[in-house]
Amino acid sequence: MANSDYAVPASRVHDILRDKGVNAVTTVPDFIQFALHDRLRADPDVTYVECAAENQALTTAMGMYIGGLEPIIMVQNQGLFNCINTLRSVGIDGQTPLVVFAGAFGREFSNLGKPLAESRRVMVNRTQPVVEGLGLPFYHIETQDDLPKIATAFDRARADKRAAVVHFGYYPAWT
């Protein structure tokens, strides 16, 4: 497969977010999800807030959710590691069904199509075990065939009143 086969169209992800009622984003921008950032920033129906650190992205999103908005949080894998305690607080103890979009920054192209656990890079091969170690569901998006997992992540988070993580293994396409 070519690398482009792993690039899920950002437009399709955007469509799923609309279907799920998402109308806000908090973010410390992610190197992987630029195409999705671009679309969501341009969407007049989405409140988009840049944050200085991932903890703040999570707590701002929790406040938005309580106030009636439907936010997602967009960070990269390093950012996810950076906010584990806040994720524990808002996404587990605080029972807030926030879906976190995390990009697999640093994933070597030779790992595409292979298990994340076989990546040579710690930030790639430990993300799923850390999230699952917290007891939170982890949905990896490798190809377009995985896109239905995004809706599943929202359904699961809302049913369980807990956070869920959607993990992008490669750059979404600018289409």
């Binding site: 807030v49 944050c51 701002t60 929790m62 406040g63 938005m64 309580i66």
Partner: peptide
Amino acid sequence: CLGLGLAIA
């Protein structure tokens, strides 16, 4: 930031 999120919403 909990307050900020509430203020936005």
